[in-house]
Design a protein around this nucleic acid. Structure first.
Length: 288
DNA sequence: CCGTTAACCTGAGAGC
DNA sequence: TGCTCTCAGGTTAACG
């Protein structure tokens, strides 16, 4: 599901809704996520009070007031977090997968919080996972290998030039590489390259300084806008209140194979190709 | 070390 | 209706 904007939306809404809530009980319906849920998972988290939720790249981190442990959450491709509030009209089961009910068989982990709030982790493909980590979690994998956040000042011209030196790959794969910059995924990379008029297959050896400056600038701009619109809901991303994001309505190229190029005065037809087994949407006329 | 590919999973949607 | 096939907002082990 999620790239940086969707995880950021989750983080913000969780901070509003579950901060200072206490974990009363945990149900693990299926421990077999990408990595098996740790054996002491329930024991460590039970009775903990959530003090803050933060984001690193596409990871969520739950912080607790009385413990040095933290909970690292990655949503993989299809993970979602829903809040179910008893006796409230806000029942997030309502609109998942276009079904009238959330498919229960993929509700793998449920946290029962006080005030009758349930936090439900649902993930059909089980590429996501939860892991209890220590306070120095940034020093260890998987977070220690991540490149800078796209909004960070570390993601700048000098860093970019230095990173690509002596490397050989296309610009699309470069932006997908979380070791280079962490948080972009398939949707936003496609959108950024369209915005910059750069062909996704272009070798990083041939990027001009103008190209690089443009990528840095447009990356921040597009991600910021996506967050403003509540993220993208293309199949299973929902905000925790069960509503969709709206940035998918702003897509220029993603998922728009054979559509007219949306750029003014361009007569091109958008094309879909594959690079490293991931779909790429672009305009062969104006993206050079 | 570097770049690429396959694998991990389930379900939706298309085509027949 | 039902079967097959392809594809999906990600990550990483294994390979050459």
């Amino acid at each position: 599901m999620p790239e940086l904007p969707e995880v950021e939306i989750l983080k913000r809404s969780l901070n509003k809704s579950i901060k200072s809530k206490k974990i009363i009980k945990i149900n693990i319906n299926n421990p077999n996520l990408r990595y098996k849920v740790q054996k002491n998972f329930k024991k460590i988290l039970k009775k903990k009070v959530i003090s803050k939720v933060s984001r690193v790249s596409k990871y969520l981190i739950l912080h607790f007031s009385s413990n040095k442990k933290k909970l690292l959450i990655h949503l993989g491709m299809s993970g979602t977090i829903h809040l179910v509030i008893e006796k409230s009209k806000i029942n997030t089961n309502a609109s998942f997968y276009k079904l009238s009910n959330l498919p229960l068989k993929h509700n793998h982990i449920i946290f029962f919080l006080n005030n009758k709030i349930k936090l439900v982790y649902n993930d059909p493909r089980r590429f996501g996972y939860m892991k209890i980590v220590d306070t120095n979690f940034m020093k260890y994998k998987p977070l220690n290998k991540l490149g800078p956040d796209p909004f960070s000042s570390k993601f700048n011209l000098i860093y970019f030039k230095k990173y690509i030196k002596n490397k050989k790959k296309n610009v699309k794969n470069l932006l997908m590489d979380q070791k280079f910059v962490s948080g972009l995924g398939n949707i936003y990379v496609n959108e950024v390259l369209f915005s910059c008029k750069i062909n996704p297959s272009k070798s990083i050896l041939n990027l001009s300084e103008k190209n690089i400056k443009d990528i840095i600038k447009k990356t921040k701009k597009i991600l910021k806008k996506a967050i403003l619109f509540g993220g993208s809901s293309i199949r299973d991303f929902k905000k925790i209140d069960g509503k969709s994001g709206n940035f998918q309505q702003k897509f220029m190229v993603y998922g728009k194979n054979n559509k007219n190029c949306p750029r003014n005065n361009c007569e091109g037809l958008l094309k879909k190709i594959f690079l490293s087994n991931r779909s790429v949407f672009f305009c062969p006329i104006c993206q050079i």
